[in-house]
Each structure stands twice: as structure tokens, then as C-alpha cells.
Design a protein around this nucleic acid. Sequence first.
DNA 1: ATGAAAGCGCTAACAC
DNA 2: GTGTTAGCGCTTTCAT
Lengths: 349, 349
Amino acid sequence: MESVDLKKLARLLNLSISTVSKALRDSYDISKETKERVIALANELNYQPNPHASSLRRHKSKTIAVIIPEIANNFFTLAINGIESIAQEKGYHVLIYITHEDAEKEVAFIKHLHNGRVDGVLISLSSSTKDYDHIKELQERGLPIVFFDRVYEHLNTACITTDDYESSYKATQHLIDKGCTNIAHLMFAESTSIGNKRMKGYVDAIHDNGLPFDEKMIVHCTNDDEQDYKLLEKIFRSKRPDGVFASVERYAILSYDVCNRLKLSIPEDIKLISFSNLQAAAFLNPPLSTIRQPAFDIGKEAASILFKALDKKMFKLKQENIVFKSTLVERESTSNSIIRKASDNKKVF
Amino acid sequence: MESVDLKKLARLLNLSISTVSKALRDSYDISKETKERVIALANELNYQPNPHASSLRRHKSKTIAVIIPEIANNFFTLAINGIESIAQEKGYHVLIYITHEDAEKEVAFIKHLHNGRVDGVLISLSSSTKDYDHIKELQERGLPIVFFDRVYEHLNTACITTDDYESSYKATQHLIDKGCTNIAHLMFAESTSIGNKRMKGYVDAIHDNGLPFDEKMIVHCTNDDEQDYKLLEKIFRSKRPDGVFASVERYAILSYDVCNRLKLSIPEDIKLISFSNLQAAAFLNPPLSTIRQPAFDIGKEAASILFKALDKKMFKLKQENIVFKSTLVERESTSNSIIRKASDNKKVF
DNA sequence: ATGAAAGCGCTAACAC
DNA sequence: GTGTTAGCGCTTTCAT
């Protein structure tokens, strides 16, 4: 428990505290000699400056907060990886807050950030967040906050996303190209940016292809597996969609489950495509056609922008949308061929 | 940027700073009246105490560090969820450090924790960690540190794990029961606790069943997908195992890939079982038999123990192993029936 | 080139 | 019941 602090180093070296401090910060007006002496001892004793003292004095904490709705999710997990890679590079520390899709928790977390614990915030909004005063207030305190994935575009800061609208349009078009005419959209919370944009892409593709639009084909999913399962079961039964566009990975997995239960065959009865970063998508039964988001890059870019705002006092965050393209990966779940693929021959005997 | 601090509150209320401070901490010797006045204003202005000042003064930071080898991993992701649930309850903050399986980074992170940034540490060791001096040193500084999953049992602290040995034995036995006689073990880094225990379970089951043990059937996997792919391809080709026990999820996914490539059928040619917390395991082709670890509970328990050590000064961490049982979930990847399951009938025409 | 001293915002003795 | 004061460990003028 004997902690090493500047006082101790100073005493041991017969120097003043301030000299030691300056030496360690490589100040110009300390002689090379003493610098070396100081650094040598500091290393020997593994001196680590007390971050609280330092933060208190300098009004910066060298840490950022990452606020996400959930973590058992391939997208966020990859995004954190991207964020963390930049933070490590910059010598920053990363605090994680998980809102579990609860706006109240989001507000509470943000409130707790109002006094210097972090220098900046990266956030992906919870699905139940309906107003943005908590974010605004934080900004007014001078804290840079940048959005990624689930964003709010009217707050004079950067939003890092994927091309949700275009990707959804493409996914829907893909289903149509494969012969679907009765396509269900498993929609994510309509209070979110992604929920809306992904739905708009779907709706526009339906219209542009002259297909009838049926409000009932939009399934307003929740955050609860059981409830969503029932919703899907109901619509798969009653509306008999021949195509399903899942706006998030979880709904795709549920779709597999429901189809199994209802003995609906993918892709023969229902073609399925989903936003998903699932590593194992290619090994599902059948392999899942996905829209793969560049999650790592999104995290990385969000962090980079935030650090730009932290590094340079001149750099001001301004409203801007930075968009990374997703990739549509076609697999068997949207195949319209009757011929089994070679890799599946083994399944038939 | 106008920050609200005790001084400001005191000025506005015509009280001294210490009175305000005590009122907010609900001290006994402040009148109910002033307490209410103080709290009212504090809420109105959304006063948040400066955590650095407070930490500096009280020598505790109300934050813990979680050090993990990787994050794009269902196990760790669930464990973090468990940890975070407890931390939230206790009002603690969670710093995340990802070592990316790099022992040097692990050492560096731990060194940085030597001066009060956190009150305690939860760690799952990197696969390249070979000595534990950095951990010992941290302990000597008085910081409680508890292990989970990838542990080191000789350090006088708690280790929270699953029953790696028993589960591996069961998994291997399961393959044997299904008729396998030539079983490969895809082994995780032998410097890790889990790598060793899982192998031992495999070896003992092989022996106990009177099967010949072949050193060559143990594949020493790495952290690199490409390299591992080649290793698997080689052994699947040359040794023609009829059963494969993957010690971690990643190796199972790779096995699917390699089997596809080599036109080996699961489970007809090779039966496959793996430690895995993959949500979609039931929808893989074929559905994957798994050993599912109670990852959330492991994280939760690790955090609970750590907080016990933080809450009560009397409570001393001592060497103890807390073991949560994993569950073997049998699915088609280890099936030995020739009859296709009903749910798969649709695949045949 | 080095040191003395003030102070970041808060807490906790200790006065009054 | 309220106020005064002395730090926590560090950074940073300002003196020497």
C-alpha cells in the first residue's frame, strides 16, 4: 500500500516536488542530468501519477464515456473495438455505460457526466429515448459528444452512421429481384434514427417497384424476444409474407425460430435478409443474406472525431453526417433457385 | 461551461461550503431545513460533485477496471453484462481495457492502475500471459483483483470459472457415446487455465474409455483465423477425425468452414461439439451441440465478490474457486441417427 | 536550473 | 447547527 508519489520521489532525490514534476513532464527548464535521475527512479519504483490529482488540477480526465443501448450485440461489440483501438493509441481510458434501451438510465448516466469525470462522450441512443434535453445540457456544459449508429441529427455535432436508407432500399430491392411481392419489414423502434431510415428505404423500394404497400406488413418489434416471437408468428401465419427484411440481427434469428416452428422453409416459402454482423451468418441453415455494417470503422471514426475535438481547442464539432457504406452479402436465405448448392448436397441422401 | 460547484451553491444559499457539503452527504448535524434548501438548489442546478476532487480526498474512485482479452466474443460480452449490472446497482463506474491477447498490453494496463484510478480490478488473463508479477504487484499495492474465466489460482484471491474440466470430460464422453473413436481436440492456448483444464477433461475421457490417445489429435490453435484454418484443414485431411471437440466458439465456426470446403458432412463424417454461447447455435447447419457457460452469472459473481472486498474493510479476499456449472446442449452436430429430423425435412426434395 | 507557494473542488477534523 | 481550516497529489506561475 506504500504509494509512490511526487513527494516520495522528491525526498529520495533531494529535489523539490515541483522539480520532479517538471522533470517527469519533460519541461524545458530542467537539466538533462536531473531529468534522467528522476525518470530512472520513477521507473524503478513504478511511479504512476495520481490521476485524480492531475485531473483535478488540469481539468481534464483523459477518459471518455461510451454509452450504448446493449452490449450482447455484434454491432456494438465491434464498434467498441474500433473505439478502444483509437483510445488506446491516444492513451485515453474508456468508461462503458449500458442503458439497456432505457431512456431514464441514459439520462441518469449523462447527468453523472456533468462534472469532469470524462472529457467527451460517444453515444448510441437508446430505443426509448424521445427527447434530447439531457444531451443538449451536456453540450452546454462544454462537453463534446458525438453520436454513432443511433443518432440525433439536430444537435450540432457529428453523427457517424452507415447508409441505412440506401442499404434498406437495396435489401428490399434484392428481395423483389428474387421474386418477392409480399414483403414484411421487421421494424426497429420508430423513435430511433435507424428504425426510421431503414423503414423508409423499405417503403420507397416497395413503391418504386409498383408493389402495393400494406401497413400491416410492417411489424413494430420490441426489445423483448418473447413478445417479438409472437408478433412474428402472427404475421407469418396471417399474412404469409414471401419475403422478410429484418432491420436488426435479433429479428433474423427469431425469424429462423418462427419459421422452424411453423414449418416454413427459408428461402422456398420465405426469403430472409437482415442487417447483421454475425460471424456465423454463412453457416446458418440456410446461410443468411446480410447487410453487413462496417461497425469497427464506425466506432473508430466516431472516436477519431471526438479526439479531434479534444486535441485541438480550435476544432469545433459541427453538425455533419459521416456515412460508411454497408455491404449486401447475398447468401442462400434469399436464393430463388430450386437447385441445391453443391455445399448442401451432403444434406440430401 | 459554467460549472456548478460547492462554492457556487454555498454563495447562492448564504452558507459555508462545508455546510453545503455535509447537507448533501446527509450528515447528522445539519438541520432538516437547510438540508432541504441545499438539496433543492443542488437538484435545480443539477449539481454533480467533481469526482476527481472527491476521489483525491477520499482515496477511492468509485470505479473498477475490467480487463479482458477480447470483446468480439459472446462469453465476454455476457460477462460484462453481468459485471455491469452489479456495478450499476452499486453506483460504480466501469473502465474497460482490452488486451487483444497481448501480455504486454496487459502488463501496461495494470501498471497504469497503480495509483488510485480504480478501486478494484476484474481480469480474465490474456492467452500470452506467462507470468503474474504484474498482478502480484498490484495486489501488494492493496488493490483487490479478482479473476474470472481465465484465471491464475495461486494468488490468494477469488477465481470465478465454469467447470471446465468436467464439462470437457462430458463433451468428450458425449462424442464417444455417439460412436466417435478418433476425436480431435481443438485446444486453446496452453498457457491458460481454460486451455489446460479443457484439454485434461478431453484426455481423461479418452483414457477412461479405453480409447487410444494420439498426441497428434490435439490441435494447438492460435489467435489467428487464417492460421487456425490451415491447422484444421490439415488435421481434418490427414487424420480424418470422426469427432471434434472445440474448446472455444471460434474454432467451431472455423470447423464449419473447413468441413464445407473439404465436403465433410457434419455429423455424418465428423461430429462437432464446442464451448459456445452463440445465440444462433440452434440455427446453424447443422445445429451445433454446445457447452453453454453461465457467462452472465460468472460476471455477476466476480463483480459481487469484488464489491464485497470494497464495501467491507474487514472482508479479505482469499484464494477460493467459485465454479458455475456449464450445460451441455445436445443438437444435431453430434447426432448419430441416420434419420433426418422433422425440422430438416424441408431441406430434402 | 531549481524551489516556494497557490490552488484545482472536495472532505473531515475541529472550532465556535 | 454552522463555519474555519487543513489537506488529498498534482501542476503551474512566479521567485530565486
